[in-house]
Simulated scan of single mutants.
Amino acid sequence: MFINNAATKKPENLLVGSDIVGTELADVLCESLRASFLVTRLPTPADGNYAVIARRLGKSVAEASGIRGLLVCGTGIGVCIAVNRLSGVRAAVCHDIISVRLSVLSNDCQVLCFGSRIIAPYSAIELAREWLSLRFNPAGSNKSAWKVRQIDETGV
């Protein structure tokens, strides 16, 4: 039903961004994931605004194949809403293992969002590792993921 990245031994290209509130958790995620993934930490915008970093990360994800992203703000909600406004990007706020798995397996999620005021660093690291180990399998997915893609492409 899913493809596990660990079996392919291919490093994942990962962008990590945060607003000012999420900086500490984003830095912890980068340090913890660098050994296994190609991590690029995007600088927090000077004004600390979550919409700016969400747009920057989202544009990179939408424009390049094989790049995924982690975004962190206080709740994860603001960055998730902002990045989902961009065409071709699918993001989810996930603070539990089932949501993490289904965000990829059922919904082809490319950006995982965390709330630094909601989740402990250890839990965020474990969930990010799980999320990065999974791949969307079009053959085994439900039709809803394709309907969302169609809406994105046609606007209807």
Rank of each mutant, 00 (worst) to 15 (best):
Val16Met: 00
Ser18Gln: 04
Asp19Gly: 08
Asp19Ile: 05
Asp19Tyr: 03
Ile20Asp: 11
Gly22Ser: 09
Gly22Trp: 03
Thr23Ser: 14
Leu25Pro: 14
Leu25Val: 08
Leu25Ala: 08
Ala26Cys: 08
Ala26Gly: 12
Asp27Leu: 07
Asp27Cys: 07
Asp27Trp: 06
Leu29Phe: 01
Glu31His: 11
Arg34Tyr: 00
Arg34His: 07
Arg34Lys: 14
Ala35Gln: 14
Ala35Phe: 03
Ala35Cys: 04
Ala35Asn: 13
Phe37Thr: 02
Phe37Ala: 10
Phe37Gly: 00
Phe37Asn: 12
Leu38Gln: 05
Thr40Glu: 10
Thr40Asp: 02
Arg41Lys: 12
Arg41Pro: 00
Arg41Ser: 01
Leu42Ile: 05
Leu42Gln: 05
Thr44Leu: 04
Pro45His: 01
Pro45Met: 06
Pro45Arg: 04
Asp47Met: 03
Asn49Thr: 14
Asn49Leu: 15
Asn49Pro: 09
Tyr50Cys: 11
Tyr50Trp: 15
Ala51Pro: 13
Ile53Glu: 05
Ile53Tyr: 01
Ala54Pro: 13
Arg55Asp: 10
Arg55Ser: 13
Arg55Met: 03
Arg55Pro: 01
Arg56His: 15
Leu57Ile: 02
Gly58Lys: 02
Gly58Thr: 01
Lys59Trp: 03
Lys59Tyr: 04
Ser60Thr: 02
Val61Ala: 08
Val61Thr: 04
Val61Phe: 07
Ala62Val: 07
Ala62Gly: 12
Ala64Trp: 02
Ala64Cys: 14
Ala64Asn: 15
Ser65Arg: 15
Gly66Ile: 02
Gly66Tyr: 06
Ile67Asp: 04
Ile67Met: 07
Arg68Asn: 03
Gly69Cys: 14
Gly69Ala: 12
Leu70Cys: 13
Leu70Glu: 10
Leu70Asp: 12
Val72Gly: 04
Val72Cys: 09
Val72Trp: 08
Val72Met: 05
Thr75Leu: 14
Thr75Lys: 09
Gly76His: 06
Ile77Cys: 10
Ile77His: 13
Gly78Asn: 10
Gly78Met: 11
Val79Pro: 05
Cys80Tyr: 10
Ile81Trp: 06
Ile81Thr: 13
Ala82Trp: 09
Val83His: 09
Asn84Gly: 04
Asn84Glu: 05
Arg85Ala: 05
Arg85Leu: 09
Arg85Ser: 06
Ser87Gly: 04
Ser87Ala: 11
Ser87Arg: 13
